[in-house]
């Protein structure tokens, strides 16, 4: 099996997949802790469906670089959902649900009305479940994903304290001079970027797993925000790495294999948490 693995690693697209997969898993796990604590666990799902709808528009318009449409639209909707925070007229879960199903239905409808390939169902399935998307990246995709991931990680590291304050108590953050609205806007933008990148890794339907499971696994056994974040980041990258390697060795879909590994880790952490009490 090791010989087989080394042989697979000689293929450039496998190395690209591992690099981008690890970076995306790292980014999503960092912001995942914030989202879970703010009760926005399903934002990944909602925004990924918006990204799917945007992708459908870009496909129909025959745009060469679909990121030019997908990224701005997803960021706009992320700001719409998150920026208002607790003062929104339509609260978090309702807003997410509305956008999620609306965008998914809209996207699938226009892809069927204006098909751009001979296998629309296959394209949709591949986008939704990310079966091999991560293994079909061009070098340009790798550079774009790498640069965006580095920016996201950099923002999280530089604004860690403020993100921490806004996550736990927006009113207190405002009272001590932190511009909570501005940081909500920043978080919304960063999440949108992560979601668009993560679609390549696990597909639209499974993105929430990348966001939720590492954070929940960490919270099962650790208590402080810093330790939860660090554990979440490390476990997410290991799970993504394992998931990609298992999928190429066993011939399973990449997205669901990564999520399965995440679920198994969550089960283990949950048990450990229960035993420790």
């Amino acid at each position: 099996m090791l010989d087989q693995l080394f042989m697979y690693l000689s293929f450039p697209f496998v190395r690209y997949a591992l690099i981008v997969g690890v970076l995306i898993a790292l980014c999503s796990s960092l912001l995942g802790v914030t989202l879970v604590l703010k009760r926005y666990s399903f934002i990944g799902d909602g925004l990924s469906h918006v990204a799917f709808g945007s992708l459908a528009i870009a496909t129909v318009l025959n745009v060469t670089n679909k990121m030019l449409i997908v990224l701005p639209l997803t960021i706009a909707f992320a700001i719409l959902i998150l920026r208002k925070g607790k003062n929104a007229k339509i609260k978090g879960d309702a807003a997410i649900a509305m956008l999620s199903v609306g965008a998914l239905a809209f996207g699938y409808m226009i892809m069927n009305l204006f098909p751009s390939s001979s296998n629309v169902a296959g394209d949709v399935c591949s986008t939704l479940f990310g079966s091999t998307s991560i293994l079909t990246l061009t070098q340009e995709d790798v550079w774009i994903s790498g640069i965006l991931s580095i920016i996201v990680i950099g923002i999280f590291i530089l604004f860690y304290n403020r993100i921490f304050a806004v996550t736990f108590d927006e009113d207190f953050a405002n009272a001590v001079g932190t511009k909570a609205n501005a940081y909500n806007l920043l978080i919304a933008t960063v999440i949108a970027v992560i979601i668009v990148l993560a679609m390549n890794l696990v597909g639209s339907l499974l993105i929430s797993a990348l966001v939720i499971f590492p954070a929940l696994s960490a919270m099962s056994i650790l208590k402080s925000f810093r330790s939860v974040t660090i554990f979440s980041a490390i476990s997410s990258t290991i799970c993504a790495l394992l998931g990609i390697l298992i999928s190429i060795l066993a011939g399973t879909p990449v997205g669901s294999t990564i999520v399965t590994v995440d679920v198994i880790l969550f089960g283990i952490c949950y048990l450990i948490g229960k035993i420790r009490g």
Binding site: M7, Y8, F11, T132, T136, A250
Partner: peptide
């Protein structure tokens, strides 16, 4: 000699 996931990806890259 490759798994199904690898074969699909490699054929995709051959086309690209």
């Amino acid at each position: 000699a490759l798994s199904s996931t690898m074969v699909y990806s490699e054929v995709f890259n051959m086309m690209m």
